[in-house]
Simulated assay, not measured.
Amino acid sequence: MTGRLGRLGRLGRLGRLGRLAVSTAVGVTLYMSSSSARAGEPVIVAPAVIQGDLNKAIARQLEARLREVVQTSDLEIIEISAAFARRAAACADDTCRATLIAQTSARFLLVSEITLDNEDYHLRLTLYAATGALTARIEDTCELCGLTEATGLMGDLGARIGRKVDVATRAAFFEIRSQPPGAKILIDDKLVGISPLELPIEIGIHELRVEFDEYIDIERELEVAAGESAVLDFELQRLPPKAALDRTKLYVGLGWGALAAGVGAVAGGAAVITLDGRPITSDCSGANVDVDGNCRWRHATLEGGIGLTLGGVVMIGAGVALLVMAAKGQRANSSKTTRLMPAPGGIAWWF
Rank of each mutant, 00 (worst) to 15 (best):
V231L: 08
L232Q: 01
L232P: 03
F234W: 04
F234M: 04
R238D: 11
R238S: 13
L239S: 01
L239D: 07
P241L: 00
P241T: 01
K242L: 07
A243S: 15
A243P: 07
A243L: 14
A243C: 04
L245R: 13
L245Q: 15
D246K: 12
D246Y: 08
D246Q: 09
R247N: 10
R247I: 12
T248C: 08
T248E: 08
T248H: 01
T248G: 08
T248V: 05
K249F: 09
Y251K: 11
Y251I: 05
V252N: 10
V252E: 15
V252Q: 15
L254S: 01
G255D: 04
G257H: 03
A258F: 05
A258V: 02
A260K: 11
A261E: 14
G262L: 03
V263W: 08
V263D: 07
G264N: 14
G264H: 08
G264K: 07
A265C: 11
A265D: 11
A267V: 15
A267Y: 13
A267C: 13
A267R: 09
G268H: 05
G268I: 06
G269Q: 00
A270C: 02
A271Q: 15
A271N: 07
A271T: 10
A271D: 09
A271L: 15
I273T: 05
T274A: 11
L275V: 00
D276S: 13
D276F: 09
D276K: 06
D276T: 10
G277W: 02
R278W: 06
R278C: 01
R278A: 10
P279S: 01
I280E: 09
I280Y: 03
I280P: 06
S282A: 14
S282K: 12
D283F: 09
S285F: 14
A287H: 01
N288D: 11
V289C: 01
D290R: 01
D290C: 01
V291E: 11
V291F: 12
D292F: 10
D292R: 09
G293P: 02
N294Y: 08
N294K: 12
C295D: 05
C295F: 00
R296T: 09
R296Y: 14
W297P: 03
W297Q: 15
W297G: 04
R298W: 04
H299E: 12
A300M: 12
L302V: 00
L302M: 05
L302C: 03
E303V: 15
E303Y: 14
G304T: 14
G304H: 07
G305P: 00
G305C: 02
I306N: 14
G307R: 11
L308I: 06
L310F: 06
V313M: 10
V313K: 00
V313N: 01
V313I: 07
V313A: 04
M315I: 03
M315D: 04
